[in-house]
Nucleic acid binder design. Sequence first.
DNA 1: TGCCAGGCCGGGT
DNA 2: ACCCGGCATGGC
Length: 225
Amino acid sequence: MTGERMKSVFAALFDHFGAQNWWPGDSPFEIAVGAILTQNTNWQNVARAIENLKKAKMLQVHAIDRMPIVELAELIRPAGYFRLKAKRLKNFVHWLLERFGGSMDAMTACSLSTLREELLSINGIGPETADSILLYAAAKPTFVVDAYTHRIAVRHGWIEPDVGYDGLKEHFESHLPDDVPMLNEMHALLVQVGKNYCRPREARCEQCPLKRMLPEGGPIEPDGS
DNA sequence: TGCCAGGCCGGGT
DNA sequence: ACCCGGCATGGC
């Protein structure tokens, strides 16, 4: 993989799917909440949970901090893992209040490396959630890796199947410009490929915009089969 | 009807 | 340093 090749991948995806304009959210705080709620969960279910929070006027830092955890869990029930995620939302909000007085703007003024380290120290926020918050809520130049990214990269022979989160992140960042709109679009476009063409145990390569990038002999399965 | 969805944690090897 | 079970809802 080279920077030029990565550029042609981006061009093929952008040409096929168009601009994605992620993230669907009315505010940085809503985006951060969505990033936590969407852990291993369909976005449609997350949208319901966020809608419930809005209708209850609870999509605010102080509201989530003060609300009894059982009530919060009930509102976000459609997003799944609701007891777990209620706790995780409170953990994040508690950190945001302690560290930045509850202000996403104040958070955004802090450096990428410091924020990433601190976010990762919060229970319930792992690398993907941290990077999603950094890129989509705080507009920091970091690449977001997810299950789709891994599957697509392995099937096309860009990386070894056993590469970890940081290895995959480094692979993309080293071949992409250090540019927020680019990193934003690239991740969103890869999700589209994953949803439509690069599915678990079903590679629909015939219609995929990346079909000309496949290795000789077709896609490589992530599990080695 | 089982599989999947924009993961992460904690306990066990 | 990995490996695995648990967490939970809704759509196709």
